[in-house]
Amino acid sequence: MRHLSRTGRRSLALTAATLLSLGLGTATATQARAAPTAEVEIIDGYTRTVRESAGIAVECPAYQVLIGRAHSGDENGNTTYYCGFILIYGELVHVSPPTWSASQRESNSFFAAAPHRALVGRVHSGDENGQTRYATASMTWQGRSVTLTSYRWTPGQRESSSHSRAGAGEVMTGRQHNGDENGQTFYQYARVSLD
Protein backbone atom coordinates (compact mmCIF):
# COMPACT_ATOMS: atom_id res chain seq x y z
CA MET A 1 0.00 0.00 0.00
CA ARG A 2 2.89 2.37 0.56
CA HIS A 3 3.72 2.30 -3.14
CA LEU A 4 0.29 3.37 -4.44
CA SER A 5 0.17 6.59 -6.42
CA ARG A 6 -1.97 9.47 -5.21
CA THR A 7 -4.60 8.46 -7.77
CA GLY A 8 -4.44 4.88 -6.52
CA ARG A 9 -4.93 5.97 -2.90
CA ARG A 10 -7.85 8.21 -3.90
CA SER A 11 -9.46 5.36 -5.86
CA LEU A 12 -9.05 3.00 -2.91
CA ALA A 13 -10.61 5.51 -0.51
CA LEU A 14 -13.53 6.23 -2.87
CA THR A 15 -14.16 2.53 -3.42
CA ALA A 16 -14.22 1.99 0.34
CA ALA A 17 -16.55 4.99 0.77
CA THR A 18 -18.91 3.73 -1.92
CA LEU A 19 -19.07 0.26 -0.39
CA LEU A 20 -19.65 1.70 3.07
CA SER A 21 -22.40 4.07 1.89
CA LEU A 22 -24.14 1.16 0.18
CA GLY A 23 -23.73 -1.04 3.26
CA LEU A 24 -21.71 -3.56 1.27
CA GLY A 25 -18.52 -3.63 3.26
CA THR A 26 -16.43 -2.33 6.07
CA ALA A 27 -13.05 -0.69 6.00
CA THR A 28 -10.44 -0.61 8.70
CA ALA A 29 -8.02 2.25 9.11
CA THR A 30 -5.30 0.11 7.54
CA GLN A 31 -7.40 -0.61 4.46
CA ALA A 32 -8.53 2.97 3.93
CA ARG A 33 -5.25 4.73 4.68
CA ALA A 34 -2.08 4.76 2.62
CA ALA A 35 0.99 6.93 2.95
CA PRO A 36 -0.36 10.52 3.10
CA THR A 37 0.41 13.12 0.47
CA ALA A 38 -2.00 15.68 1.89
CA GLU A 39 -3.35 16.12 5.38
CA VAL A 40 -6.93 16.94 4.33
CA GLU A 41 -8.50 16.27 0.95
CA ILE A 42 -12.09 16.76 -0.16
CA ILE A 43 -13.31 14.76 -3.14
CA ASP A 44 -16.46 15.46 -5.18
CA GLY A 45 -19.27 13.03 -4.44
CA TYR A 46 -23.06 13.09 -4.81
CA THR A 47 -24.77 15.81 -6.87
CA ARG A 48 -28.53 16.34 -7.06
CA THR A 49 -30.69 18.89 -8.86
CA VAL A 50 -34.27 19.61 -7.73
CA ARG A 51 -36.94 22.23 -8.40
CA GLU A 52 -36.35 24.85 -5.68
CA SER A 53 -40.02 25.31 -4.69
CA ALA A 54 -40.94 21.61 -4.62
CA GLY A 55 -40.20 20.98 -0.94
CA ILE A 56 -37.83 18.10 -1.71
CA ALA A 57 -35.38 17.50 1.12
CA VAL A 58 -31.90 16.88 -0.24
CA GLU A 59 -29.42 15.14 2.08
CA CYS A 60 -25.87 14.16 1.28
CA PRO A 61 -25.43 10.37 1.42
CA ALA A 62 -23.42 8.67 4.16
CA TYR A 63 -19.86 9.95 4.66
CA GLN A 64 -20.53 13.17 2.69
CA VAL A 65 -21.14 16.86 3.48
CA LEU A 66 -22.24 19.85 1.40
CA ILE A 67 -19.45 21.59 -0.50
CA GLY A 68 -21.49 23.75 -2.88
CA ARG A 69 -24.84 24.93 -4.23
CA ALA A 70 -26.10 26.55 -7.43
CA HIS A 71 -29.49 28.01 -8.35
CA SER A 72 -30.95 29.28 -11.62
CA GLY A 73 -34.13 31.30 -12.09
CA ASP A 74 -36.96 31.96 -9.64
CA GLU A 75 -38.56 29.51 -7.21
CA ASN A 76 -39.55 27.30 -10.16
CA GLY A 77 -35.94 27.08 -11.27
CA ASN A 78 -33.46 24.37 -10.41
CA THR A 79 -31.17 24.13 -7.40
CA THR A 80 -28.13 21.86 -7.54
CA TYR A 81 -26.44 20.56 -4.40
CA TYR A 82 -22.83 19.34 -4.41
CA CYS A 83 -21.64 16.91 -1.73
CA GLY A 84 -18.14 15.63 -1.06
CA PHE A 85 -16.11 13.06 0.87
CA ILE A 86 -13.50 14.27 3.37
CA LEU A 87 -10.25 12.32 3.65
CA ILE A 88 -7.68 12.90 6.38
CA TYR A 89 -4.37 11.19 5.66
CA GLY A 90 -6.24 9.23 3.00
CA GLU A 91 -8.80 7.87 5.48
CA LEU A 92 -12.50 8.61 5.18
CA VAL A 93 -14.04 10.95 7.75
CA HIS A 94 -17.22 9.66 9.43
CA VAL A 95 -20.26 11.98 9.27
CA SER A 96 -22.98 11.71 11.92
CA PRO A 97 -26.70 11.37 11.13
CA PRO A 98 -28.25 14.78 10.32
CA THR A 99 -29.99 17.14 12.70
CA TRP A 100 -32.59 19.40 11.03
CA SER A 101 -33.07 23.07 11.95
CA ALA A 102 -36.34 24.85 12.59
CA SER A 103 -38.04 26.44 9.57
CA GLN A 104 -37.45 30.07 8.62
CA ARG A 105 -38.83 32.35 5.92
CA GLU A 106 -36.50 32.23 2.91
CA SER A 107 -36.70 35.95 2.04
CA ASN A 108 -34.99 36.96 5.26
CA SER A 109 -33.09 33.81 6.13
CA PHE A 110 -29.82 33.36 7.97
CA PHE A 111 -28.40 30.01 9.02
CA ALA A 112 -24.98 29.13 10.40
CA ALA A 113 -24.27 25.65 11.73
CA ALA A 114 -23.11 25.25 15.32
CA PRO A 115 -19.31 25.22 15.71
CA HIS A 116 -17.59 22.22 14.12
CA ARG A 117 -20.73 21.06 12.28
CA ALA A 118 -21.12 21.04 8.50
CA LEU A 119 -24.21 21.40 6.34
CA VAL A 120 -25.41 18.08 4.95
CA GLY A 121 -28.84 19.01 3.58
CA ARG A 122 -31.48 21.61 2.83
CA VAL A 123 -35.19 21.77 1.98
CA HIS A 124 -37.24 24.71 0.68
CA SER A 125 -40.92 24.90 -0.22
CA GLY A 126 -42.68 27.63 -2.18
CA ASP A 127 -41.40 31.07 -3.21
CA GLU A 128 -39.37 33.57 -1.19
CA ASN A 129 -42.16 33.61 1.42
CA GLY A 130 -41.90 29.84 1.82
CA GLN A 131 -40.00 27.96 4.50
CA THR A 132 -36.39 26.72 4.47
CA ARG A 133 -34.67 24.22 6.77
CA TYR A 134 -31.07 23.01 6.99
CA ALA A 135 -29.48 19.74 8.12
CA THR A 136 -26.12 19.67 9.89
CA ALA A 137 -23.78 16.92 11.10
CA SER A 138 -20.66 16.48 13.17
CA MET A 139 -17.59 14.64 11.88
CA THR A 140 -15.06 12.24 13.38
CA TRP A 141 -11.78 10.72 12.24
CA GLN A 142 -10.35 7.68 14.02
CA GLY A 143 -12.81 8.37 16.82
CA ARG A 144 -11.60 11.96 17.28
CA SER A 145 -13.78 15.00 16.64
CA VAL A 146 -13.00 16.87 13.43
CA THR A 147 -12.87 20.62 13.98
CA LEU A 148 -13.57 23.49 11.63
CA THR A 149 -11.51 26.69 11.50
CA SER A 150 -11.07 29.81 9.36
CA TYR A 151 -14.79 30.44 8.92
CA ARG A 152 -15.55 32.90 6.09
CA TRP A 153 -18.56 34.36 4.27
CA THR A 154 -18.57 34.78 0.50
CA PRO A 155 -19.51 38.06 -1.18
CA GLY A 156 -23.19 38.26 -2.11
CA GLN A 157 -24.44 37.08 -5.47
CA ARG A 158 -27.82 37.29 -7.17
CA GLU A 159 -29.77 34.15 -6.21
CA SER A 160 -31.25 33.65 -9.70
CA SER A 161 -27.81 33.00 -11.19
CA SER A 162 -25.81 31.86 -8.18
CA HIS A 163 -23.08 29.25 -8.00
CA SER A 164 -20.78 28.69 -5.04
CA ARG A 165 -18.25 25.97 -4.19
CA ALA A 166 -16.01 25.46 -1.18
CA GLY A 167 -12.32 26.22 -1.48
CA ALA A 168 -9.60 23.61 -0.98
CA GLY A 169 -10.05 21.80 2.33
CA GLU A 170 -13.35 23.57 3.08
CA VAL A 171 -16.96 22.52 3.71
CA MET A 172 -20.18 24.54 3.67
CA THR A 173 -21.39 25.70 7.08
CA GLY A 174 -23.99 28.41 6.43
CA ARG A 175 -26.15 30.41 4.04
CA GLN A 176 -27.95 33.75 4.09
CA HIS A 177 -30.53 35.05 1.60
CA ASN A 178 -32.38 38.36 1.32
CA GLY A 179 -35.45 39.05 -0.83
CA ASP A 180 -36.65 37.09 -3.85
CA GLU A 181 -34.65 35.51 -6.68
CA ASN A 182 -33.15 38.92 -7.46
CA GLY A 183 -31.88 39.28 -3.90
CA GLN A 184 -28.44 38.45 -2.59
CA THR A 185 -27.25 35.06 -1.33
CA PHE A 186 -24.14 34.56 0.81
CA TYR A 187 -22.43 31.30 1.79
CA GLN A 188 -20.30 30.42 4.80
CA TYR A 189 -17.41 27.95 4.52
CA ALA A 190 -14.89 26.63 7.03
CA ARG A 191 -11.62 24.70 6.77
CA VAL A 192 -11.37 21.11 8.02
CA SER A 193 -8.73 20.80 10.73
CA LEU A 194 -7.03 18.07 12.76
CA ASP A 195 -6.81 20.06 16.01
Rank of each mutant, 00 (worst) to 15 (best):
L87Y: 03
N129W: 13
R152Q: 10
Q131R: 12
I56S: 07
L20R: 13
A16F: 10
A16M: 12
L20N: 15
Q131E: 13
L119W: 01
S72G: 09
Y187S: 10
G45A: 06
R69I: 12
S5W: 01
T79V: 15
E106R: 13
S162K: 00
E128P: 04
N178F: 10
P36Y: 05
G8E: 15
S160Q: 09
A27V: 11
G73W: 03
L14A: 06
A32N: 09
A70C: 11
R122A: 01
S96P: 01
Q184E: 03
G25D: 15
T136V: 12
T136L: 05
T49S: 15
S161V: 11
R10P: 02
G174A: 12
S125E: 15
L22V: 06
G143V: 00
A29S: 14
R51A: 11
L4S: 04
E91H: 14
D195K: 07
S138G: 15
Y82W: 09
G121W: 01
G169L: 01
T7Y: 04
V93N: 04
T80N: 05
V50T: 13
P36Q: 09
A168P: 10
W153R: 04
M172I: 07
R152P: 07
G23K: 06
S109Q: 15
V50N: 09
Y189P: 07
T7Q: 09
G55V: 10
R2W: 09
R152N: 05
G68E: 04
A135E: 02
Q184P: 00
H163Q: 02
S160D: 13
I42D: 14
R105A: 14
G90M: 08
N76A: 01
T30S: 03
N108S: 11
I67M: 11
T132D: 01
L148N: 00
T49M: 10
S193L: 11
G77P: 04
P115S: 06
D74G: 15
R6M: 08
S193P: 11
H94D: 13
T30F: 02
G143A: 03
L87H: 01
L4N: 08
V192S: 09
V123E: 01
A13C: 00
R133H: 02
I86C: 06
T140R: 05
M1C: 08
S103P: 08
A135C: 05
G183C: 14
F110P: 02
T132E: 01
H3P: 01
T30N: 01
Y151T: 10
R105P: 14
G167T: 03
H71G: 03
